[in-house]
Design a protein around this nucleic acid. Sequence first.
DNA 1: TTGTATGCGTTATCAT
DNA 2: ATGATAACGCATACAA
Lengths: 316, 316
Amino acid sequence: MMTASRAINNKPGVSETMRQDIQRLAEEMRYRPNLIAQGLVTRQTFTIGLIVPDITNPFFAQIARGVEDAAFERHYSVFLINTAEEPEREIAALVSLWQKDIDGVILCSSRLQDEQLVSRIQEFQAVVLINRELPQPLPNSLSIQINDRLGAQLAIRHFLETRRSKIGFVAGPRQSLSSQKRLDGFRSELADATVSDNPQRVAYCTPNTAGGFRAATELLTRDPELDAIFAFNDLVAVGVMQACQALGKRVPEDIAVIGADDIPLAEIIRPNLTSLHVDLTNIGALALNSLLNLGAGNKTPSSIQIDPRLYIRESG
Amino acid sequence: MMTASRAINNKPGVSETMRQDIQRLAEEMRYRPNLIAQGLVTRQTFTIGLIVPDITNPFFAQIARGVEDAAFERHYSVFLINTAEEPEREIAALVSLWQKDIDGVILCSSRLQDEQLVSRIQEFQAVVLINRELPQPLPNSLSIQINDRLGAQLAIRHFLETRRSKIGFVAGPRQSLSSQKRLDGFRSELADATVSDNPQRVAYCTPNTAGGFRAATELLTRDPELDAIFAFNDLVAVGVMQACQALGKRVPEDIAVIGADDIPLAEIIRPNLTSLHVDLTNIGALALNSLLNLGAGNKTPSSIQIDPRLYIRESG
DNA sequence: TTGTATGCGTTATCAT
DNA sequence: ATGATAACGCATACAA
């Protein structure tokens, strides 16, 4: 048995003729090693878990695609789990993965409380967090974040450069971390430009088109002078544009609009949407590779920031 | 050990007091059974594989969400694999799943040849095919298909009922099975209505907005009289609408447009897109439940057809 | 280079 | 009701 095992796994200690014979025979009988039995003894399953709030959201679908492609290259398999934004399901996901002896977890936009999250992370070999910070670094964990503060700054800077001065922000959900970081960037950039920041010009909303429509209508009613709006994401931005049209304002002539995330819709909608772009597929691949590095015990940074770029199209 | 095993799995043959003690202790030490060791002996891993061409495509993302939700309910985990439309990757996916002793596979839009597909399917306990037919039924397999022929008929019928008579079809990729079935429905419905079917009014294209734009421009150049176009999918339909606008035709006043798949974009784009709708999340759930039934040896139909419904909005 | 004993964490089976 | 033994399919450690 051991000779066969060595031959098949291309390990040393087998004569070349024997190896050939065994491999030919294995091929003939269509033998494939049982990976789960293999995992039981080696404690390495070549399997990782990917937890997302909702795979239906293109943002996570793209990350998932990047993770899966990179995993495929390195002969890893990935368990996909949706949490539906429910913390209980997130915990159930973590527990179920833990029971499977997987090599690591990529956890996107965790909704768990710090304490709970930290204790769960410690149960795994390695964990990569996407879009979530940790109070203090953990040796087996790493956090990948999009630099939302910079993103907002890039957007506002572009508005200012194109002579827009009365700038609003439709900020998405109030409790969203991205939203807070962008608001921070928004304010800092306006302050730098010595353009007065006006709290009246910020509105929160649900992160979809309907929410953007409502919030922009509200903003434009309060301050009809607005000549630019930065939106929480592209769906919100579309709602903002629709609100502008409904109020008789032309985009971009009367009012400029910038979105975020650069989903495929941005290039389809008319006018094409200027948006903050990050290569999400690449982030997925980065997450997977970092995870395997972590698991291999290589030292890695505890946090990686990804800078967005502004893709300038027609809307602003 | 066996007493503990029985107690924890709630199997008979343990006194109630013993069971309580064991369970309490297990809780205290945060014990969780190792599912992979469990799978090794029981030959049941509570794991299935889901193979899709591209999770980034909302069509598959929605199915995946349905599969995953249903799997979660029944305490199953799902391996997600993207094939990128490459047959070699599809085979690699099948092999890697097979090595993991999973309980079944859900395979979407397989690009494999009949013979190869059949031989691969037979290696598994159970396989559910989505959007792919088999030459003859297999005992461990089941096929779920969208009734594209009916879908096309519904669209054309609606055009006819709303007094459109010069109807074109932007058919997507020529080799697509969906495209062929829809063309069949398109022709049959026009024949029934004794409206002459004109081969000039069919054009093929890549299944995206740019393709739809090109194909519709071609169609409208050949036959400027066209007053309705049925599109391969919603992205194509958006391209069609953009082509209409570019040629100075108003939608829906001058020309009506119907898409297919009813992706979220349909409700965002202006005018809102009339589209064929199928509950993809539900198909995913159906696929999972059918798969587990198959695996349990229950007899199931060898093929399930899902009828689309026409969601009438503004474009046609 | 080849082969044997042992154990991974669990359950099936048979004995007490 | 409880416990001992073997087995699932492999790889590690050691012996020949």
